[in-house]
C-alpha cells in the first residue's frame, strides 16, 4: 500500500477540535495545558490517520452555521412537541414508517442527515437500505407521508447537499 506523503496535520479540523476539547475538559486557558493539548492534538490524528475515512469538504461554512441554528431550534421545538404528546391523555397517535429516498451520496453527509432526523420532531431514522439510497424513518404521528418526505428534503437534505456539495 502506498502511503500518501506524510503530512504533519492530516486532519487540521480534527486537530483544532481536539485542542478545543482538551482545553474545555480541563476548564482552563493555561499555557501548559495549551502546549500539552497541542502535542496530543497533533499526535493523535497522525497515529490514527489510517482509520479516518475521507471526510467531505465543507464548501459553504455560512450555510453550515445556518443549518446548525435551524437544527438547534428544531431540537427545542421537538422537545416541547414530544412532551405535549406524552402528556396528552388518550392516544390519538398514528405511528408509521416511511421510506425516504436519499439524494446525498457521501456516507458522512447521510450520517448527518440520519442523526438530524432522529433529533427533530417526531421522527427517528431506523434503517438504511443496502444500496444506501433509502432511509427508513419511523414517525410517531404520521399524517401525510409525502408531506413528511418533502419537508425533510427541503429543510435538511437540500442545505446538506449545498454544504457538502454532493
Amino acid at each position: 500500500m502506498s502511503n500518501p506523503p506524510a503530512k504533519l496535520l492530516p486532519h487540521p479540523a480534527l486537530t483544532l477540535c481536539l485542542i478545543t476539547v482538551w482545553m474545555v475538559v480541563n476548564n482552563t486557558l493555561g499555557l501548559g495545558h495549551l502546549l500539552l493539548g497541542t502535542v496530543l492534538a497533533v499526535l493523535i490524528p497522525l497515529l490514527t490517520r489510517r482509520f479516518w475515512p475521507e471526510a467531505p469538504k465543507v464548501a459553504r461554512w455560512g450555510l453550515l452555521l445556518r443549518y446548525l441554528t435551524v437544527l438547534l431550534t428544531d431540537i427545542v421545538v421537538a422537545n416541547f412537541w414530544v412532551a405535549s404528546l406524552v402528556l396528552r391523555p388518550g392516544s390519538g397517535l398514528r405511528p408509521g414508517f416511511v421510506w425516504f429516498p436519499v439524494a446525498l451520496t457521501d456516507p458522512f453527509a447521510i450520517t448527518v442527515l440520519a442523526s438530524t432526523i432522529s433529533l427533530t420532531p417526531g421522527t427517528v431514522s431506523v434503517d438504511l437500505s443496502e444500496d444506501a439510497r433509502h432511509l427508513l424513518i419511523h414517525s410517531i404521528d404520521l399524517d401525510d407521508a409525502q408531506a413528511l418526505v418533502d419537508q425533510i428534503k427541503q429543510r435538511y437534505e437540500g442545505p446538506l447537499q449545498e454544504i457538502f456539495q454532493c
Partner: peptide, 28 residues
C-alpha cells in the same frame, strides 16, 4: 436510537397494530 431501532426491526419487535407498515422502497 438508530441502533436500537434497527436491532428491533431485524428482530421483528411487536408494533402497535395501527402502525403503517413499511413496504419496499420505491424503485428498489
Amino acid at each position: 436510537a438508530h441502533l436500537l431501532a434497527r436491532a428491533a426491526r431485524h428482530c421483528g419487535v411487536r408494533m402497535h397494530p395501527d402502525t403503517r407498515k413499511p413496504g419496499q422502497p420505491d424503485g428498489a
